[in-house]
Simulated assay, not measured.
Amino acid sequence: MFAPNTLAGRVAFITGGATGIGLEIATQYSRLGASVVLASRNQERLDAAVEALSKEGAKVAAYRMDVRNPEEVEAAIAFTLERFGALDILVNNAAGNFPCPTATLSPNGWRTVIDIDLNGTFYCCSAAYEALKASRFGGSIISIITMLGVTGWPNAAHAAAAKAGILSLSRTLAVEWGGDGIRVNTISPGPIGDTVGVQRMYEETGRAEVEKKRTALGRFGQCADIANAAIFLGSDLSGYVTGDNLIVDGGRWLKYVAA
């Protein structure tokens, strides 16, 4: 679909990059010429991801960090610049969530998800600003959210609020940082079948067919669908696109239900 040199020379930093959507984005980015730095709290998963990508000939490095810690985030960006000499694309993919009725959601539970999703995204954007401003390609920030943060997410008020906050933050930064050559966009995935989250929430609970019917296309998506969107937003193909929320959810946000 994309030319082999679509991302040639670019350096991408991807949080939550050791598994799932983050790893698929890293994989596709590297195949199109980008150098990638994977960030995660789990060293074992990072090691496995780096090993897999290295076997493909990818230019890849990993940094263990917690997005909730701004000092660790700043150190990770510094590591990226030292290792690859630049930073052109920031992908905010790290996220936390757990189902809980809002009436019984504890302050600590609320705080934890807000801290990972919303605060972590801000810390990464802030730490990466100067490097993205200096990018010879023009910087690109891509944050993974969900339309459930716009339409409402019963039993996940913490995650819904965080994702809505990321959307607002991204559009604010698109305006503030546009003059610095930095584009800021979001991607809203729907149910992605080859992720642990969907497997646990829907397939293992027997809800898979119902959830598929909630999409206009009647099926789950794949991590590759989100990676394709991230390639578009990270490349010159979207050079005049900023402040956008690219919905890749099979039409679930339309609340379609098959007969």
Rank of each mutant, 00 (worst) to 15 (best):
I25P: 05
K212C: 00
L148S: 13
S40N: 15
N42M: 04
Y29N: 10
G218Q: 09
Y256F: 12
S35G: 08
V60Y: 07
K213R: 14
G234V: 05
L173E: 11
T186N: 15
R31W: 00
G152Q: 04
E44I: 09
P107Y: 12
C124A: 15
I14Y: 01
G33N: 13
G139D: 10
I182A: 08
S135F: 08
E74M: 04
Y29T: 07
Q199W: 00
E211W: 04
R252S: 15
G239C: 02
L132V: 11
A95T: 09
E71M: 09
G20E: 07
L53V: 11
A76K: 12
V67T: 13
A128Q: 07
E44N: 13
C124I: 04
C100T: 14
G239M: 03
L46T: 13
E209C: 01
L105K: 00
E204T: 03
V257N: 11
A12C: 13
G33A: 12
A164H: 09
P101Q: 04
K213P: 01
F122E: 00
A164P: 05
T104M: 00
S30F: 10
V196G: 03
S135A: 11
S40M: 05
G9E: 06
Y63A: 08
V60I: 10
N69D: 09
N155R: 04
T172E: 04
D236M: 07
I166F: 08
G139V: 07
T172K: 05
A159M: 02
F137D: 14
R68A: 06
S126L: 08
F232G: 02
M65V: 11
F2D: 14
G9K: 11
